[in-house]
Computed example of a mutant assay.
Amino acid sequence: MKKVLFDSDVIIDVIIDVMVNRQPFVANSSLALNTVAIFKVEGYIAGHAVTPERLLELVFRSK
C-alpha cells in the first residue's frame, strides 16, 4: 500500500471545502482524503503541523 504525506494546508483546505461545500473544489479535495478512508493509501500528516494555532485558524477561517 502506498504511503501519502498530506501537507497541513491540504488537510485544512479539504475540511473547509467539505464544511462549506466550496464548489468546484470539494469533489477533488474530498476524493484525496477519501482514498485514505477506503484504505487505498496510508495517509499521514506531520505531528508538528497540527498546532493549536492551526486549529484555531481552521475554525475562524471557515466562518
Score class of each variant (00 low, 15 high):
residue 2 K to T: 03
residue 3 K to P: 00
residue 3 K to V: 00
residue 3 K to D: 04
residue 4 V to A: 09
residue 5 L to W: 13
residue 5 L to Q: 09
residue 5 L to S: 07
residue 6 F to L: 11
residue 6 F to Q: 04
residue 6 F to N: 01
residue 6 F to K: 04
residue 7 D to Y: 13
residue 7 D to F: 10
residue 7 D to T: 01
residue 7 D to E: 08
residue 7 D to A: 06
residue 7 D to V: 00
residue 9 D to G: 14
residue 9 D to P: 00
residue 10 V to R: 06
residue 11 I to Q: 10
residue 11 I to M: 12
residue 11 I to S: 01
residue 11 I to C: 05
residue 12 I to K: 11
residue 12 I to R: 09
residue 12 I to C: 10
residue 13 D to V: 00
residue 13 D to Q: 06
residue 14 V to G: 00
residue 14 V to F: 03
residue 14 V to Q: 08
residue 15 I to M: 04
residue 16 I to E: 07
residue 16 I to L: 09
residue 17 D to R: 11
residue 17 D to H: 14
residue 17 D to W: 07
residue 17 D to A: 15
residue 18 V to C: 03
residue 19 M to K: 13
residue 19 M to Q: 13
residue 19 M to S: 11
residue 19 M to I: 15
residue 20 V to Y: 09
residue 22 R to T: 05
residue 23 Q to R: 11
residue 23 Q to N: 06
residue 23 Q to A: 02
residue 23 Q to Y: 05
residue 24 P to L: 02
residue 24 P to V: 04
residue 24 P to M: 03
residue 24 P to A: 05
residue 25 F to V: 05
residue 25 F to P: 01
residue 25 F to M: 06
residue 26 V to N: 03
residue 26 V to K: 06
residue 27 A to P: 01
residue 28 N to S: 12
residue 28 N to F: 02
residue 28 N to P: 01
residue 30 S to N: 04
residue 30 S to W: 01
residue 30 S to R: 05
residue 30 S to V: 10
residue 31 L to H: 09
residue 31 L to P: 02
residue 31 L to M: 10
residue 32 A to V: 10
residue 32 A to N: 07
residue 32 A to P: 00
residue 33 L to H: 05
residue 33 L to A: 02
residue 33 L to Q: 05
residue 33 L to Y: 07
residue 34 N to Q: 12
residue 34 N to F: 15
residue 35 T to Q: 15
residue 35 T to K: 15
residue 35 T to G: 04
residue 35 T to S: 14
residue 36 V to C: 09
residue 36 V to Q: 04
residue 39 F to K: 08
residue 39 F to G: 00
residue 39 F to L: 10
residue 40 K to D: 05
residue 40 K to Q: 08
residue 40 K to T: 00
residue 41 V to Q: 10
residue 42 E to N: 10
residue 42 E to Y: 07
residue 42 E to I: 07
residue 43 G to C: 13
residue 43 G to R: 15
residue 43 G to E: 11
residue 43 G to L: 14
residue 44 Y to T: 00
residue 44 Y to D: 01
residue 44 Y to E: 04
residue 44 Y to K: 07
residue 45 I to G: 01
residue 46 A to V: 06
residue 47 G to S: 15
residue 47 G to V: 02
residue 48 H to T: 08
residue 48 H to C: 08
residue 48 H to P: 02
residue 49 A to M: 12
residue 49 A to P: 01
residue 49 A to Q: 10
residue 50 V to N: 03
residue 50 V to G: 02
residue 50 V to A: 03
residue 50 V to P: 00
residue 51 T to C: 05
residue 52 P to M: 07
residue 53 E to H: 08
residue 53 E to L: 13
residue 53 E to M: 10
residue 55 L to Q: 14
residue 55 L to T: 13
residue 56 L to M: 12
residue 57 E to F: 08
residue 58 L to T: 12
residue 58 L to Y: 05
residue 58 L to A: 11
residue 59 V to P: 01
residue 60 F to L: 11
residue 61 R to C: 09
residue 61 R to E: 14
residue 61 R to N: 13
residue 61 R to Q: 10
residue 61 R to I: 06
residue 63 K to H: 09
residue 63 K to C: 03
